[in-house]
Design a protein around this nucleic acid. Structure first.
Length: 425
RNA sequence: GGAGCGAUGCCCGAGUGGACGAAGGGACCCGGCUGGAAACCGGGUAGGGCUCAAAAAGCCCUCCGGGGUUCGAAUCCCCGUCGCUCCGCCA
């Protein structure tokens, strides 16, 4: 959520910056500005009346003790009270509409974000490693997984429908090993605190991180209990300290969390239909930081490095991409994607996305910190990034480590997590 | 799922219709005392909004959240959320 004051006082700036995302928000912003004006007018009026009522009510109390007649004043105040109720009701309507609209406004891109229409405007920041040369035609991971009997697409679909899959034997073990490897790396070497949180959350959590109200179609909803399945642990972890005022000396808070992620992929019919890269349920290890505005961009850089470290240790070639304004997510001010090389698919594949949301989410969830003793609270900055997507990492391992004979030689760093197993097949 | 009880400031806790943003205690901060400290003494310590260029100041709101009754609500009524206790069920 953007600061209403910013929208009010720098309307043109806000419109222009939002416009760089590729959609026009002028009309929405104009509606917000005019509702805000209306709101302030009503407030001025109703507060005057309340002030008067407070004074007179006190006086009535005093007069009653003195045995004076107060019927006339009482009657007058009853009328004032009616007016207040009317105005308050009006104000509630205006405020709820204002809030509703404001929740649909995306975050303002950071000034360092390149302006561009779509992913063609993204900038490659750096590349790590080189795509391996194969002396045979490398296969895509879905063929490898099926041939080795470690990924079961058919039965995943039998159980739950399209875009679900199952793992078996060393496939299941590898998935689990990857999760543990990533969690250990981030807790032991990068200083994150591990948390394990609910996968089902209240609607206000989804609103807090920006999935609701705009992206309800993308998520699974348990209607009976009005709970939502998280599309990423970003939701549960970032909301962990919602409505709190944190001490500055505790910042930055750095959390890492494993979670299953659930996505309806509503707008992706027919896209990436093969393999495990676009499915309704997948595992992810997520990084979240809560920090100060002064530190947040440094923290974004180090978060990207922490995520890349996973891929470096796995010796998977990857590159870091700075997203342009048109490719930026709703809540983000600045985002780096990390893309891994998939020799079987012959393309780069997003395996992590690290964003600084500045105070956009913090404002939605009322997450603040106190810069120093006695100071006014300020909104914190929140960051999130995959560290990294587990299913896609498994796919990348299958494709990058495949051998001519169809077997997989497992990355060395995983061997302690695989009880010494060195290859599959 | 049933029954009952509860939610007050940073923490504990009083208040059950009128001067209450809220007694008292603790904690913390500042000052005094001291060679220094403890004890003691004095003072202070919530959030949001509106008016405003801003500051200052004033006003409004907030005693879990939302409605209502009333001239006036922390206090009375209704709804919701969360917590506790007992019963039932359950991995």
């Amino acid at each position: 959520m953007l600061d209403l004051r910013l929208i009010r006082e720098q309307t043109e700036f806000v419109k222009e910056r939002l416009g760089s995302r590729g959609d026009n928000y002028d009309e929405l912003i104009d509606q917000i500005v005019s509702l805000d004006e209306k709101r302030r007018k009503i407030i001025a009026e109703v507060e005057n009346l309340k002030h008067r009522r407070n004074l007179v009510s006190k006086e009535i109390g005093v007069m009653m003790k003195e045995g004076k007649d107060v019927t006339a004043l009482r009657e007058e105040m009853r009328q004032v009270g009616d007016q207040i109720n009317e105005l308050d009701a009006l104000l509630r309507n205006v405020e709820s509409e204002l809030e509703r609209l404001t929740l649909f406004v995306p975050n303002i891109p950071h000034e360092s974000v390149p302006v561009g229409r779509d992913e063609s405007g993204n900038k490659i920041v750096r590349v790590w490693g080189e795509p391996k040369e194969f002396d045979f035609e490398p296969k895509p991971h879905w063929e490898i997984g099926e041939e080795l009997g470690i990924i079961d697409f058919y039965r995943g679909v039998k159980l739950s429908g399209s875009r679900f899959y199952g793992l078996k034997g060393l496939g299941a073990t590898l998935e689990r090993a990857l999760i543990n490897f990533m969690l250990d790396l981030h807790t032991k070497e990068h200083g994150y605190t591990e948390v394990f949180l609910p996968f089902l959350v209240k609607p206000y959590c989804m609103e807090g991180t920006g999935q609701l109200p705009k992206f309800s179609e993308e998520m699974y909803w348990c209607e009976r209990d009005n709970l939502w399945l998280i599309p990423t642990a970003e939701v549960s972890v970032t909301n962990l300290h919602r409505e709190e005022i944190l001490d500055a000396e505790d910042l930055p808070l750095k959390y890492v969390s494993y979670s299953a992620c659930f996505r309806r992929e509503a707008g992706a019919a027919g896209k990436d239909i093969k393999g495990v890269i676009r499915v309704h349920q997948f595992n992810k290890v997520e990084l979240v930081k809560i920090t100060t505005p002064e530190q947040s961009y440094e923290e974004l850089e180090s978060m990207v490095r922490d995520a890349c470290h996973v891929l470096e240790l796995l010796k998977l070639p990857h590159r870091v991409v700075l997203l342009c304004t048109g490719d930026l997510g709703f809540s983000a001010s600045k985002t780096y994607d990390i893309e891994v090389w998939m020799p079987g698919m012959n393309r780069w594949l997003e395996i992590s996305s690290c964003s600084n949301c500045e105070d956009f989410q913090a404002r939605r969830m009322n997450l603040r910190y106190r810069p120093y003793r006695g100071a006014k609270p300020r909104y914190a900055h929140t960051l999130n990034g995959s560290g990294v997507a587990v299913g896609r990492t498994m796919a990348a391992i299958l494709e990058n480590y495949q051998q001519k004979d169809g077997s997989i030689v497992l990355p060395e760093v995983l061997r302690t997590y695989l009880k010494g197993v060195e290859r599959i097949g």
